[in-house]
Every structure is written in structure tokens, then in C-alpha cells.
Design a protein around this nucleic acid. Structure first.
Lengths: 143, 143
DNA sequence: TTCTTATATAGGAATCATTCTTATCTAAGA
DNA sequence: TCTTAGATAAGAATGATTCCTATATAAGAA
């Protein structure tokens, strides 16, 4: 998803963050790259137009964006952390072999799960979020 | 879950693996420790009785056990990988603050999900496994 | 049993994503 | 303009994990 420069700034402001060129560039990168980029991909992307931004700053800013709920962390079976600018509730379809992640939106499923666990009423645990990791293999190479 | 020495050996053999003292000690550690130990916890545990087992060997053996489907990897929000000797299908209840993981078994839920996705019939993806990560907070400190 | 050889392990260096440290810089209010 | 808390640059440090190589060992062959 591509956002305008103004939209990026607005998101930062709405989150109560100071707008800096670094934060702008990094948030824009996560949106533009899409498909759950790693920190390294973000770095490669922003270095083209902002060669001066330090590696540590990218990690620092990504942490800030996560804390401010502008971005989510996504774990995979591989080492590196991935980031996701889509904040609506969704699940992940994941292939461990290729490390490819696709988003999966399904309100019907979310409702189903919510009512299931309300009925189940787990003792000793307050559920905040339920995320499905749907593992398997993609049948094609389309992105 | 505590297994006898013979049961450990049998599991290694059934998986087509050579039985070595290192493999025996490490698989036994994952079973005995329970509750999704990290490699470091496994190392601390086995060093008491097997001070000579090298750190690299523990990672190496854990990889072998995972490849042989005797153990599963479990990711959390923290850095270190965790390991799980329970191979039956199950989900995880997880608290990010304390990094505590509890297993969640629920065949009814598994059936529900299976029929839901069969009906949904995802294009371009062959589902092998669906894992729920149920995130939130435990209401007490019981283990 | 002894020999042979593929496999496994010890020991420690190397890697790599991420974090930390410190000095410098900058945005926003006084 | 001045002040200062917050942000960044640069690169060292960390820590889990992997890699490398010489040595050791398990399991089948003789």
C-alpha cells in the first residue's frame, strides 16, 4: 500500500510522535515495500534516498513504530524479524520453505473464533488476540 | 513428561537415528524440562550430568531431533528459540510479558478449523498445519 | 572380536541480527 | 534566540546460533 507523504506525516502525528525525516522514510518504506519486509530490506530501501540513516536508527525507529501501534512485528521460522504496516486484524499464510508470508483477512473466521472462545471461557487467561498461522505450501510463484 | 531411558532410546531408534549419549541426554532434557525449554535451559540441564557436551552439539542435536520429528521448534516474541517434545497437534497460549507458554489441546477446535478451511478451499495454497497463538495474560502465577 | 568408515562430537572461532553506548544534533517550547 | 528533552550517527558490543576442523565413536564388515 502506497501512502502520500502527508498521510505518513499524519500517521506519525496521530500516534503522538515527532515527525523526523528518519521516521518518515522508515514508515514509508514499510508501507511501500509491503509483504512484511525485514529490517534489512527497509535499510536497503531507504539508503537509496537517505544514505545517512544509521542501521541502529532503523531498529530504533521500528521499535518506536511498533510501540505506537503503527506497525506490527511478524515472526517467522527464520531468524530475522519482519514488519507489517497493516494493523487490521488478520492472519498469516506462511510457507516455511520460501519464507513467504501472505496476509489472510477473514471476519467470519474471527467471529467464529471469538464466539468459540467465549463459550469455552478459558480459566486463568484473558485473551487479547488470536492469530492463526496457516502453514503449508503455495501452489504457484505469484506474488 | 518423564520418559524412561529405554523409551528415549526407542524414540531415537524409531526415528532412524543412531543412539548416542548426547542425543539421549538432550532428548531426555527436552522431555523432562517440559514447558518449552530454550537451548540454554537444555544446556544447563545436561551439563550437570554430562559436563563434556559442547554447546554446538546441543544445537546440532536439537536440529536433528526437529528434522526427525521428535521435537518441534516454538517461536516466541523473544530472541531465543524454544523446543517442545509434545508432537500431538496443539496450540499455544502465550503471554508476551512473561514469555510464558502453555499448551492448548482442543480437538473440537481442530475439527472446526479443518471443516471451515475445507469449505473455504483456499486457492493457491495447500494447508499442512494451522496453529493458533492465543495471546494475552495469565490471571495467576501457577505453573 | 577387530577393522573400516561414515557419522557424530568437542572446542572454539565466526556470523549476523539486533542492541547498546556516547557524542552530536535537532525540534519545539520558553 | 535559548534551552533542553528527545532523536540520530557511528560503531562497538552482545548473544544466540552456526561453522570449521580435528578427533572420536557407533555400527556394519571381515
Amino acid at each position: 500500500m502506497k501512502l502520500s507523504s502527508e498521510q505518513i506525516n499524519q500517521k506519525l502525528k496521530d500516534a503522538g510522535l515527532r515527525v523526523t525525516p528518519q521516521r518518515h522514510a522508515i514508515l514509508e518504506a514499510v508501507y511501500t515495500l509491503g509483504n512484511h519486509p525485514s529490517a534489512e530490506q527497509v535499510i536497503d530501501y531507504i539508503r537509496v534516498n537517505h544514505p545517512g540513516i544509521a542501521t541502529g536508527t532503523v531498529y530504533n525507529v521500528l521499535d518506536v513504530l511498533v510501540d505506537s501501534r503503527l506497525v506490527k512485528r511478524v515472526k517467522t521460522d527464520k531468524d530475522a524479524m519482519r514488519y507489517d504496516a497493516i494493523m487490521n486484524r488478520h492472519h498469516h499464510i506462511y510457507c516455511a520453505e520460501t519464507d513467504r508470508i501472505e496476509d489472510y483477512f477473514d471476519e467470519e473466521l474471527d467471529d467464529l473464533l471469538q464466539s468459540y472462545f467465549r463459550k469455552k471461557n478459558l480459566q486463568n487467561f484473558k485473551i487479547e488476540d488470536i492469530i492463526l498461522q496457516i502453514k503449508g505450501n503455495f501452489n504457484d510463484n505469484s506474488e
